[in-house]
Amino acid sequence: MENSLKSSLLISVIVVLNIIVWMVLITALGLGAMHLNDCPLQPYIPIYLVVIGATSIASLLLFYFNNTLDTSYFSLLSSSTIILLQLFNLGWFIAGSVWVYSIHTVNYDATAGEKYCKRAVYLFAFWFNSLGSICVAMVCTCGLYCVLLTFVKMAFRGQHLFHSQNRCYGVDA
């Protein structure tokens, strides 16, 4: 009974996180597309939102499609495309961070001529990048923690990470 409760709780959390991610990506795509010319101070910000939204949505769709496939040519092609899209998204995220954070003072008034950016576009891009950076840092920290924990557990059990020529089937020669 307890395993089924944990399993249903895990599935519920994954579904809720999935819905949140989809909402954020669709908002990025739509906000960037609607206000494509509303940020002359840094015209790449709306383009950044459109591209990161579209490529991330495509990557998610391919991931879902890939989970329905058996090991085949299409699965390999889909996995390769997902990896390439994620590498592109990483580079695009870094470029978007440069574009967003390069603006120190933002004028939100459209009557200011060429030195303004639409408030909703800039603030969404700013918080998208800030929260994205926090999430990446948390994932890297948790991953490093898991690797370190694995090494410590192996050391306490007397297991070796790498094969040694001086040992034969786990017994020192």
Rank of each mutant, 00 (worst) to 15 (best):
residue 4 S to P: 03
residue 5 L to K: 15
residue 7 S to V: 04
residue 8 S to C: 04
residue 8 S to G: 06
residue 8 S to M: 10
residue 9 L to F: 15
residue 9 L to N: 11
residue 11 I to D: 12
residue 12 S to E: 07
residue 18 N to D: 12
residue 19 I to Y: 12
residue 20 I to K: 04
residue 22 W to V: 09
residue 23 M to W: 11
residue 24 V to D: 00
residue 24 V to C: 03
residue 27 T to Q: 04
residue 29 L to K: 03
residue 31 L to R: 01
residue 33 A to W: 05
residue 35 H to A: 02
residue 36 L to A: 08
residue 39 C to A: 09
residue 40 P to I: 01
residue 40 P to V: 00
residue 41 L to H: 04
residue 42 Q to F: 02
residue 43 P to S: 08
residue 44 Y to M: 12
residue 45 I to W: 00
residue 46 P to Q: 00
residue 48 Y to M: 03
residue 48 Y to I: 02
residue 51 V to L: 08
residue 53 G to D: 02
residue 54 A to M: 07
residue 58 A to E: 03
residue 58 A to P: 00
residue 59 S to V: 04
residue 61 L to Y: 07
residue 63 F to G: 09
residue 64 Y to A: 10
residue 64 Y to F: 15
residue 65 F to Q: 07
residue 65 F to M: 05
residue 68 T to A: 13
residue 71 T to S: 11
residue 71 T to A: 12
residue 72 S to L: 04
residue 73 Y to W: 15
residue 74 F to A: 12
residue 75 S to V: 04
residue 78 S to K: 01
residue 78 S to H: 01
residue 79 S to T: 09
residue 79 S to R: 05
residue 79 S to I: 02
residue 80 S to H: 09
residue 80 S to G: 15
residue 81 T to F: 07
residue 84 L to T: 11
residue 84 L to A: 15
residue 85 L to A: 02
residue 88 F to R: 03
residue 91 G to S: 09
residue 97 S to M: 08
residue 99 W to L: 03
residue 100 V to H: 01
residue 100 V to L: 00
residue 101 Y to R: 07
residue 101 Y to L: 11
residue 101 Y to S: 03
residue 102 S to Y: 05
residue 102 S to G: 05
residue 103 I to T: 11
residue 106 V to N: 02
residue 106 V to Q: 03
residue 107 N to L: 03
residue 108 Y to H: 13
residue 109 D to H: 08
residue 110 A to Q: 13
residue 112 A to G: 06
residue 120 A to P: 02
residue 122 Y to D: 01
residue 124 F to Y: 09
residue 128 F to R: 00
residue 132 G to I: 04
residue 132 G to T: 06
residue 133 S to C: 06
residue 137 A to N: 07
residue 138 M to N: 08
residue 140 C to R: 08
residue 141 T to F: 15
residue 141 T to E: 06
residue 142 C to D: 10
residue 143 G to V: 05
residue 146 C to W: 14
residue 147 V to K: 13
residue 151 F to L: 13
residue 152 V to H: 10
residue 153 K to F: 11
residue 154 M to S: 10
residue 154 M to N: 13
residue 154 M to T: 07
residue 157 R to P: 02
residue 157 R to H: 11
residue 157 R to C: 06
residue 158 G to K: 06
residue 159 Q to Y: 12
residue 159 Q to G: 05
residue 160 H to Q: 12
residue 161 L to I: 11
residue 162 F to A: 06
residue 162 F to G: 02
residue 163 H to P: 04
residue 164 S to C: 09
residue 164 S to Y: 13
residue 165 Q to V: 09
residue 165 Q to L: 14
residue 168 C to A: 08
residue 168 C to I: 14
residue 168 C to G: 07
